[in-house]
Design a protein around this nucleic acid. Structure first.
Lengths: 193, 193
DNA sequence: TGAGTTATAGAACATTCGTTCCAAAGTGTG
DNA sequence: CACACTTTGGAACGAATGTTCTATAACTCA
């Protein structure tokens, strides 16, 4: 009955995500989104609501697609300590890859908007908590496996790792050189000893 | 001969700094600056140039006034290890103080603008290097004083501390709770052992 | 006191912003 | 084929953006 959509919602979100990721919320204009997604203004507003609503959809999309992938090894590698180490080393590697100085959309958005936008603040906070819990789970595995001393305060260590992981994203976006980022990561991992 | 200025350049920079610090570059409008500084548009443009030029002046002002103060103890406390510990604990304390979730203007600006603005990127990079060197100096003092093991890689540790200090600012701006931030800081300091 | 100089106040500029509206286009069902 | 319905393209909206202009005010030095 109705005219069918000429676009794929998922790929529109992908494109919108990349613009927000690269430029941030404020610096991204509706015109940018129209240009890059190929989607018409009217269709954008009809399908996603206003700029802010689209942005929140994008944050969710990012969580499910990018964040999930970044933490996949941390969840799936059985050896808890190896899982943590690979997670950081991968982040350091992709963080210094050419033309990929975008950091993490969740961290970027938290920094840009959290102080004045409770909605984004809550999402960023929740994402941090999830990361913290995922690190805690890996740490508990590592303790059980005898790869990390039983004497460690797992919760504090998990918070440290989650915070430091954000730090890696931060330094990556700021364009830190590979050597600095590697030193940073390796010293973080030394905290596991 | 000329009509004298009705404003104090320093206090205008102070006010402008606080707006940029709180809202970021993009979200701060000229109107905001006019309202908050009390300075007229024409006078702003005559004295500081356009928005970007004013922003760069503000970054410099921040470096001299706020950054310098934040790193004063790190430079001045003779005991290198105590200097480092106090620097982090103070940052964690002020970072969770009510209504002070602004983080660090240098970190914020690097995150927001570095990927697309080489000028800001260079300034943020230089600020990081300065912090790294200041931490390295304190670490060297601590090693000489026998407060930190001789076996440590001071350069890597300095990079770690500088990166982690940015992380504290990040978490503070994102509105992390006090307990999380304390755990984060204490674990960072454990790396000195 | 008046000439010279610069700051001030605020109107005015073109452009871009986010958003809405409307007519045309495309689909499946009666 | 025509109806009901939704998407599409693009014009149009007012408000806000960064910036400039003009006229007036305030001061110092001759």
């Amino acid at each position: 009955m109705p005219r069918p959509r000429a676009f794929d919602e998922e790929s529109v979100l992908d494109n919108a995500m990349n613009i927000f990721w690269s430029k941030g919320f404020e610096a991204t204009s509706i015109q940018d989104l129209v240009n890059e997604t190929g989607l018409n203004r009217a269709s954008m507003y009809a399908s996603f609501g206003d700029k802010k609503a689209l942005f929140l959809r994008v944050l969710d999309h990012y969580s499910q697609k990018i964040s999930a992938e970044r933490f996949a090894d941390l969840r799936n590698i059985e050896d808890g300590r190896a899982a943590i180490e690979k997670t950081f080393r991968d982040a350091a590697k992709t963080g210094t890859a050419e033309g990929r100085h975008k950091g993490c959309l969740m961290v970027n958005s938290g920094m840009e908007l959290a102080p004045h936008d409770p909605e984004t603040a809550a999402i960023a906070h929740q994402a941090f908590r999830r990361a913290e819990d995922t690190f805690a789970a890996a740490l508990n595995r590592a303790v059980d496996q005898g790869k990390i001393s039983k004497g460690k305060n797992v919760r504090a260590l998990a918070r440290f790792l989650a915070g430091s992981f954000q730090g890696v994203q931060l330094m990556s976006r700021r364009g830190a050189d590979q050597e600095t980022l590697q030193d940073y990561c390796e010293t973080i991992l030394d905290a596991l000893d």
